[in-house]
Computed example of a mutant assay.
Amino acid sequence: MTLTSTDPAMITVHKKRRDPVLIILWLALVVLAMIWIAPFIFILFTSLKNNADVMTTSAFAPPTHFETENFTKAWVTGNFSELMVNSVIITFIKVPVGLLISAMGAYALARIQMRWGKAILLFLLLGAMIPFQVMLAPLFTLVNSLGLIDTYVGVILPYLAFGIPYQVFILHGFFKAVPKELSEAALIDGASHFTTFRRVFLPISLPVLAALLILDFVSTWNEFAMALVLLQDKHMWTLPLGLMSFQGQFSNDYGQLNAAIVMTVLPAVLVYLIFQRYFVSGLTSGAVKG
Score class of each variant (00 low, 15 high):
G190Y: 06
P62G: 05
T4Q: 14
K49Y: 09
L257I: 02
F197E: 09
A259V: 01
L212Q: 03
Q113E: 11
A106Y: 08
V288S: 06
L187V: 03
V85L: 15
V229Y: 10
M236N: 12
F217Q: 00
F140T: 00
E67R: 03
A211V: 03
L136D: 12
A211T: 07
I89W: 07
L157C: 07
G127C: 05
L206N: 04
L243F: 11
L273S: 08
M34F: 15
I188S: 06
M55N: 12
L32K: 00
P207E: 05
V280D: 13
Y278T: 05
T6G: 07
A38S: 12
T91C: 10
V229R: 00
D233V: 01
M135S: 09
T57Y: 04
F92S: 11
F60V: 07
L122T: 13
K234P: 11
Q133M: 14
S285Y: 08
K180R: 14
A161I: 11
L100V: 14
W26I: 12
S285M: 14
T2F: 08
K118C: 05
V288N: 05
L29E: 07
N50W: 06
A211P: 01
I90H: 00
L215M: 09
P138R: 06
N86P: 03
A106T: 08
I37G: 01
L142T: 11
S285C: 04
S145T: 06
P203L: 11
T77L: 15
G163D: 14
V280I: 15
G282M: 03
P203S: 08
A210W: 01
G147A: 12
S205A: 14
Q232R: 12
A119K: 08
A268D: 02
V88S: 13
R198F: 11
S102D: 12
K289C: 15
L22Y: 05
F66K: 00
L187A: 13
V95A: 02
F194K: 02
K234A: 12
H235P: 02
L146D: 12
W36T: 10
A259P: 01
I35Y: 13
I93L: 15
L202T: 07
R199T: 12
V76M: 12
A210S: 11
I11R: 15
A227N: 09
A185V: 09
F279G: 03
A185E: 08
P39N: 10
L83Q: 04
S285H: 04
F217M: 10
G127V: 09
I170D: 12
S58D: 15
L241F: 13
D189M: 11
T46V: 09
P179F: 10
R199K: 06
A227Y: 06
H65F: 05
I149T: 14
S102P: 08
M84Q: 06
M104E: 00
F250W: 07
I89S: 02
W237P: 07
L209F: 07
D7V: 01
V134Q: 11
A210M: 07
S81C: 00
Q276S: 14
E181Q: 00
R18G: 15
P63N: 09
L209K: 02
L148T: 02
W75S: 04
K49N: 08
P267C: 13
Q256T: 14
T284P: 03
L270W: 03
W75R: 01
H172M: 14
V271T: 03
L273P: 07
L29F: 07
V143E: 04
L22A: 10
L202Q: 05
L202A: 06
R198H: 10
V265E: 02
V265I: 14
L109D: 02
V143D: 08
